[in-house]
């Protein structure tokens, strides 16, 4: 009622909530928005539409000049009924993404707390620890992978040499060629190279936490666990939400770590969606089929992103805003 009476007293533009923009302002907005829209259409919309179109053809690497023939949803049917593709999806979702991201988030949190701890500051190790933390992040993935491949090599690798000299194993382990070890080894490499960003993000969030809050909780008799549960974690929630989302996108789409570390092997043991797309397109020459796999991959990520933002991120960020 109140709003109704207020609305009647105010001129028309305020009632609708939409003010008619003067032509000059519209022109400015159009001019400002046109270049990014143009770029989006050129570099995102067009390639996406082109890829979807290709996925409905039998386009081959050997027939690029002629183009592919329309085969409707055949590629999608083949994908959905292929046991190999189901295995690829499983590897991508469970091993690469769920396990990989979880390890990174948990270790990132632990490391952030450690680097933010008073003990490190007391021993004047904070700065050097932070510098050391940056080193893996500053290492290009290709270099990191080559170094780790040598470290894990069963013949000359330092990891095997150390384990043997410590008496933990008596025979070297082919970490990147043994079914039981290859996924942990790959996740170790990815984690080593990408953990610093996660840790730094959490550290930045931790450092913005007012110390008075912790002191107040401690004065109120809160245990360390309760401080963690009711002060630190709620404060870190927005950072965790964002890092989970970003890490999931990066990891799910990742190609380089798997391809350069294992070549999607041994066998098909570490074949993920990105490597499957590459194999189908550039080794087997089936561009149409790999386009279909790409569409499925993008769809899975879009659905994940929407659900995540809608259900989890929105709630968490809203709670944070209200707080």
């Amino acid at each position: 009622m109140a709003s109704h009476s207020t609305a009647s007293a105010v001129p028309a533009p305020a009632v609708s909530g939409r003010r008619k923009r003067p032509p000059s302002e519209r022109g400015f907005l159009f001019t400002a928005l046109a270049p990014p829209f143009f770029l989006l259409i050129c570099f995102y919309v067009y390639p996406t539409v082109f890829n979807v179109e290709n996925s409905l053809t039998d386009l081959s690497l050997f027939g690029l000049r002629d183009g592919g023939e329309w085969i409707g949803l055949e590629n999608y049917v083949e994908l959905m009924t292929s046991p190999d593709f189901r295995r690829v999806v499983w590897n991508t979702v469970v091993w690469l993404t769920v396990v990989g991201v979880s390890v990174r988030i948990v270790l990132g949190l632990a490391l952030a707390f450690l680097l933010n701890s008073a003990t490190l500051k007391r021993w004047r190790l904070s700065t050097i620890s932070r510098i050391l933390l940056i080193v893996p992040w500053a290492t290009p993935p290709v270099v990191a992978i080559i170094v780790w491949r040598w470290l894990l090599d069963p013949r000359v690798g330092a990891v095997n040499a150390a384990l043997i000299s410590l008496g933990i194993i008596d025979q070297p382990i082919a970490f990147l060629a043994t079914a039981g070890w290859v996924w942990p080894a790959v996740i170790t490499i990815i984690t080593w190279n990408t953990l610093p960003l996660v840790t730094l993000t959490f550290m930045a969030s931790l450092q913005s936490l007012p110390h008075e809050l912790i002191e107040a909780a401690e004065i109120d008799g809160a245990s360390k666990w309760q401080v963690m549960r009711y002060v630190y974690i709620p404060h870190l929630k927005p950072a965790i939400v964002i890092m989970v989302l970003m890490s999931t996108f990066w990891t799910f789409n990742n190609f380089i770590y798997i391809w350069l570390t294992t070549g999607a092997g041994p066998g098909t043991y570490t074949n993920v969606m990105a490597t499957e797309i590459y194999i189908k397109a550039f080794i087997e020459g089936r561009l149409g089929y790999s386009s279909a796999a790409g569409v499925v991959m993008a769809t899975i990520m879009t659905i994940f992103g929407l659900i995540y933002l809608r259900v989890i991120a929105e709630r968490e960020l809203k709670e944070e805003g209200e707080a």
Binding site: G267, T268, Y269
Partner: peptide
């Protein structure tokens, strides 16, 4: 890949 799967016991 088929040989690799057999060799590693996959």
């Amino acid at each position: 890949r088929a040989a690799g799967s057999a060799f590693i016991g996959e």
